[in-house]
Design a protein around this nucleic acid. Structure first.
Length: 850
RNA sequence: GCCCUCGUGGUGAAAUUGGUAGACACAAAGGACUUAAAAUCCUUGCCGCUUGCGGAGUGCCAGUUCGAGUCUGGCCGAGGGCACCA
């Protein structure tokens, strides 16, 4: 048997596909399209196993859909702006552009080694002016629509990366990339008005049937819609402060009012700017706001003002007003009314400052002596101690009635609030898309005119300075518009902007005049299947959805509201972690094992290795397997097969050397099967064996059906198992001599089933068998899907007692007769009476006997 | 604290959606071939009695059903998301 030489064969087919532009896709309105997209990579240097998994899953789908006759768009590009380039450049005194381009060409070659069915003609790179010039135009378009604005705002300042972070980029009070504690800083920033579309973004989720529920729930929570009421509280104690507006979801508990609490950034704070005690209090708050400990403990502290707020439903009820650290300025109005009895947070505060606790909601079964002391009651019940509200059912009925009452008295309004905040997109960074804006001497904003776009990044600049490098480029900063001199905006756009519309660019990637061609976009969009990591569940996916909303806004030619009709989130690739005795991470390459499965350092066999938990592959933990090395050792088809086997694609997969080897061996075995069949076909003799021929045909068609179903459901790991079964079956039955044409016909089907997973081997085998490859997905033939004989399960009183091999579609009476003829039945149940029969056709029979 | 998801052999996992639990693979043990090793192939897989069969069995406890890994309720455990959101 000839050994499968993947090195030669894989290279041969890869260059064949490239040369023949086998995966080039052109708009064709007579053909159904399928847009298959995997999240594009950041060009960090080398592809990693996560990419292999992501792109293999996508490639299987793209190839399958193409074989099914779809016009498949399957492009690839580079998310190539961002801080790693800038950091690497800073550290090694390089140019970010060169660094990025080098990485791209390296990774492009590595991706090509995987044999992906990519239309490389559509390749894009977000750091290229030919991409970001369109992004600048888009920015101005959104600006004209009023969806972009500038405001001074507290920002999350990352002191290590020296940049502003979006709320989503702050994790546990730390920068998502640097891990540094985030500080509060006031800066002028550009914002996208994403919150304008809160409702659409929320409602749109309902229609995304092919999205994982998990992602939809996460986005829903992130948008955070809540229904309630705004109440302006009349305030006395300072002539200049007439009222303080609060938002509440529980207006029904208004008679439990005990205090008002406002944020330290609330507009009324300006009246306390000179108050030393208030200044100290503010300091205390900002301290506790940034330390991790305080975030966890979250002790509630307040600063009492001399103001008194009036209960709008009872003018005689007056309560103190506090500044409090737990009130956020950027939610609602930055002010809340405290009802300690029915809100745990308010209760904690009331207990600390000895404030009144008045219970106004009691559970249905309690009487009017019910009283809250240390545990707030937030459940349903009846209102009491509440004057005209007494007897109402809390929460729903009471809330609606109270709002009605307040509206009638003009003391409040129904209000819906969202947690979603506008997206701050300014970054004080060099390696990003320049914001196409400028300022005159007074600081007034002016757009860079379209004929002066793109605003190119200056090249060859010094990055070894603190702060924003662009701010120090005096030449670059100065711009002449209509003969007048302006200063450019020196901030660049958050890189999440780059990835919010790249899928549109792919539809017409070479269009120089427009970011996307409307006709092309209307044909290809939406993306039918988007595939990527769960880590983008909120940020990238929500921003992309916002972009579609904002492009559609006031635009009759574009009404794609959802970019991705299908979403699949694949799991991570994991590996065991290793440490040496001095607690240093050790790479799997540096380890050997002895007979007792103990691990040792390769270059110091005395040093025992401590095996740690299985974690997702990361450079920092050094538990990384390099895809390129694996491809060189085992070939692309083997690594594709392994990455699909073992675990369902949505779950994490654990890298295993044995598993990788097993996949490699299976590829070799398949080739062995090919060789065996080729030699049968090349033989002059032919045979006939109708039983075996029928068997092989039935098996094949049933397999077509199974694999097709499993492809539709992303059960790729099961497909691998199906193929193992196929090999076992074929290998066995081929020892029987039968008609050559039957073998050939069925094996061609098999090769087509294999080709989305192992495209090189399938292509080579088809060629060697001299099959004209029409690249069509096989259709199962109905008559072969049924077996003549079937195993019926016989249960007696609900327990499996035997199985009977019988003809298919046997009817109940016939089956019972043959059961009664069995030795087993006569031995054990001859004297029993059948009182009930449950018969499931072609599956089982359950006899209830007495 | 709130929300979501998941608990099946030594391991990764299958299970036509309520109908043979453990397909397929990894690992292990035993065997075959071999001078030997590698490779390859076969067998075994929890508890009983010798094969065959019987029994228990899908985190735990109940329920619905002729029949539950699958449905319902409660509990336990793991993972993930959000976190002073008023």
């Amino acid at each position: 048997m000839e050994r499968y030489n993947f090195k030669i064969i894989e290279r041969k087919w890869q260059s064949y596909w490239i040369k023949n532009k086998s995966f080039k896709s052109l708009i064709n309105k007579n053909q159904k399209k399928f847009y298959c997209l995997e999240m594009f990579p950041y060009p960090s240097g080398n592809i990693h196993m996560g990419h292999v998994r992501n792109y293999t899953i996508g490639d299987v789908l793209a190839r399958y859909k193409k074989m099914q006759g779809f016009n498949v768009l399957h492009p690839m590009g580079w998310d190539s702006f961002g801080m790693p380039a800038e950091n690497a450049a800073r550290q090694n005194n390089l140019d970010p552009k060169n660094w990025t381009e080098k990485n791209i060409s390296k990774m492009r070659e590595q991706l090509k080694m995987l044999g992906l069915s990519i239309d490389w003609d559509r390749e894009i790179s977000t750091c290229s002016p030919s991409y970001y010039k369109h992004q600048q135009k888009l920015f101005l378009e959104l600006y004209d629509k009023g969806l972009v604005y500038r405001k001074e705002n507290y920002v999350n300042w990352d002191p290590v990366d020296k940049t502003v972070l979006a709320n989503e980029q702050v994790i546990d009070g730390k920068g998502w990339r640097s891990g540094a504690l985030v500080e509060r800083k006031k800066l002028n920033q550009w914002f996208f008005n994403i919150s304008k579309f809160s409702d659409q973004l929320l409602d749109g989720l309902e229609k995304l049937d092919s999205w994982p529920n998990k992602v939809k729930v996460m986005q829903k929570n992130w948008i955070g819609k809540s229904f309630g009421c705004e109440i302006p509280f009349t305030v006395e104690g300072n002539k200049e402060i007439k009222e303080i507006k609060c938002f509440t979801t529980r207006p029904d508990t208004l008679f439990g009012l005990s205090f008002l609490a406002v944020s330290i950034d609330h507009p009324i704070s300006k009246f306390y700017e000179d108050d030393k005690e208030f200044i100290n209090f503010k300091k205390l708050c900002s301290k506790s706001g940034t330390t991790e400990e305080a975030l966890a403990q979250a002790e509630k502290i307040g600063f009492k003002t001399k103001l008194l707020a009036q209960n709008p439903l009872d003018n005689n009820l007056k309560v103190p007003v506090y500044f409090a650290n737990f009130v956020l300025m950027d939610y609602g109005f930055g002010a809340v009314f405290g009802c300690p009895a029915h809100d745990q947070r308010d209760l904690d505060f009331a207990l600390k400052y000895n404030l009144k606790i008045k219970t106004v909601v009691k559970p249905q079964e309690e009487n009017e002596n019910f009283e809250v002391t240390t545990q707030a009651y937030t459940g349903p019940g009846k209102l009491f101690n509440s004057n005209m509200l007494n007897g109402l059912n809390a929460p729903e009925e009471a809330i609606l009635k109270t709002i009605e009452l307040l509206e009638n008295k003009k003391k409040g309004n129904k209000k819906i609030n969202f947690r979603l905040k506008d997206w701050g997109v300014s970054r004080q960074r060099y390696w990003g898309c320049p914001i196409p804006m400028a300022y005159d001497k007074k600081g007034n904003v002016i757009k860079i005119p379209e004929n002066q776009l793109p605003v190119l990044l200056p090249e060859k600049i010094n990055l070894k300075t603190n702060g924003n490098p662009l701010d120090q480029q005096d030449n670059w900063k100065t711009v002449t518009i209509d003969g007048k001199i302006y200063k450019r905006e020196t901030d660049t756009l958050d890189t999440f902007v780059d990835s919010s519309w790249y899928f549109l660019r792919f539809c017409s990637s070479d269009n120089e005049n427009h970011g996307f061609d409307t006709e092309e976009v209307n044909y290809w969009m939406p993306v039918d299947q988007y595939i990527g990591g769960i880590e983008h569940a909120i940020l990238h996916l929500l921003y992309s959805r916002f972009f579609m909303q904002s492009i559609s806004f006031k635009n009759d030619n574009f009404n794609i509201n959802e970019p991705f009709s299908g979403l699949f989130t694949q799991g991570m690739v994991c590996h065991e972690t290793y440490k040496d005795q001095s607690n240093n991470w050790i790479s799997p390459d540096e380890i050997t094992t002895d007979d007792n499965k103990n691990y040792f350092k390769k270059d110091d066999p005395k040093e025992k290795i401590i095996v740690g938990p299985v974690e997702s592959m990361s450079k920092s933990k050094r538990n990384v397997i390099e895809p390129e090395k694996m491809i060189e050792k085992y070939g692309a088809d083997s690594i594709r097969l392994f990455i699909l086997s073992d675990s369902p694609p949505e779950k994490d997969i654990q890298w295993s050397d044995q598993g990788m080897l097993a996949s490699y061996k299976f590829v070799q075995k398949l080739w062995g099967l090919h060789c065996k069949i080729k030699s049968i076909l090349d033989d002059d003799k032919n045979y006939s064996n109708s039983e075996a021929e029928e068997k092989i045909t039935k098996f094949t068609h049933q397999l077509i059906q199974k694999i097709t179903n499993n492809l539709e459901k992303f059960n790729y790991n099961v497909i691998v198992a199906n193929l193992y079964e196929m090999y076992n079956f074929f290998n066995k039955i081929l020892s029987v001599k039968m008609n050559k044409e039957v073998i050939k016909e069925n094996f061609v089907h098999i090769l087509k089933l294999i080709s989305p997973l192992m495209p090189h081997l399938a292509a080579e085998s088809l060629e060697q068998l001299k099959i004209e490859n029409k690249n069509e997905w096989p259709e199962p033939i109905e008559k072969y899907l049924k077996d003549d004989n079937i195993v019926m399960i016989v249960q007696i009183n609900g327990k499996k007692r035997m199985s009977i091999n019988t003809k298919v579609d046997i009817i109940q009476d016939e089956l019972i007769t043959s059961i009664k003829n069995t030795e087993y039945y006569n031995k054990n149940y001859a004297d029993k009476k059948i009182i009930k029969t449950i018969f499931v056709k072609n599956r089982l029979i359950n006899l209830i006997v007495k």
